[in-house]
């Protein structure tokens, strides 16, 4: 299973035979900052960057967001894409797994296998987030998103994921599973992950520095969200080979932020 043409329209989205609006309503709801899943409490390192002076105006913010998108955003998009493909696949988890035995995809054995596969994808996310502060922020947001999404869009995949990773799956994985539940394609899940990797930080900077919100929205509009998402989808890796772009400055900011006394944002 590699999500290419054989995966069909439900997987790829491009969708011969699908209505042009396929998945869009779910995507809008998921990506909306008003989704009650706690995303507004996180600045993705922007609060600490503002405090230390690394971001002091729209130009710095633009560079911050471009770098964030090219690293954490790329990784998040790839993980969300993979999680959404997995949630869509009726044969999951008999895919992308070393030593996968071809047991029939039904019953308890299947549920246990699916849980194992979710934990494996979650471990791949863990290995890509060196900073404990960032892992905590990612799991906290993932847990809240799964809790919310399970009530909004009840689904098997979300239930299995919540059971497999009770402390909270990493946010991009939760987002991928929630996207499937919301009727989105993996491409839309990847786009939502790329989008949320920069919008929270941008909004935080507006609030912290009193920047002009229109200027900041223009910065967001100029980010290469679609190019990034397209290139992530085109790569279509095994889980072990998914992008792993590191951002050492974000790691430092996240750890310093936890140790800063006065904080408006959780991360």
């Amino acid at each position: 299973m590699d999500g290419t043409a054989a995966g069909g329209p439900a997987v790829n989205g491009a969708a011969p035979g699908m209505p042009p609006t396929h998945g869009l309503a779910g995507l809008l709801l998921l990506a909306d900052s008003r989704l009650p899943a706690g995303g507004h409490a996180h600045s993705g390192g922007a609060e600490e960057a503002c405090r230390t002076g690394a971001i002091s105006g729209p130009e710095d913010l633009a560079r911050f967001l471009r770098g964030r998108l090219a690293t954490a955003g790329r990784v998040a998009a790839a993980l969300a894409w993979s999680a959404c493909v997995a949630a869509h696949d009726p044969k999951f988890p008999d895919m992308r797994r070393p030593n996968s035995h071809n047991t029939a995809p039904d019953g308890h054995a299947h549920a246990a296998d699916a849980a194992t596969a979710w934990r494996l994808l979650d471990a791949e996310a863990d290995a890509r987030i060196a900073s404990p502060a960032q892992r905590l922020a990612s799991r906290t947001q993932g847990r809240l998103l799964v809790r919310t999404a399970k009530r909004v869009w009840p689904s098997t995949a979300l239930g299995t994921l919540a059971g497999a990773v009770p402390d909270g799956a990493h946010h991009p994985i939760a987002l991928g599973a929630a996207a499937q539940a919301a009727g989105c394609t993996p491409a839309q899940a990847a786009m939502a992950a790329a989008y949320t990797s920069v919008t929270g930080a941008a909004t935080a900077a507006v609030r912290l520095l009193g920047l002009d919100p229109v200027t900041v929205h223009r910065v967001l509009a100029e980010l290469p969200l679609a190019d990034l998402t397209d290139s992530v989808i085109a790569e279509q890796h095994d889980w072990s080979a998914l992008p792993a772009h590191a951002a050492p400055a974000l790691d430092l900011l996240a750890e310093q932020h936890l140790r800063t006394e006065v904080r408006l944002f959780v991360s």
Partner: peptide
């Protein structure tokens, strides 16, 4: 995209 970004290497 990432050179000089305060999120990646900063001024290092």
């Amino acid at each position: 995209e990432s050179d000089g970004s305060p999120a990646v290497f900063g001024t290092a």
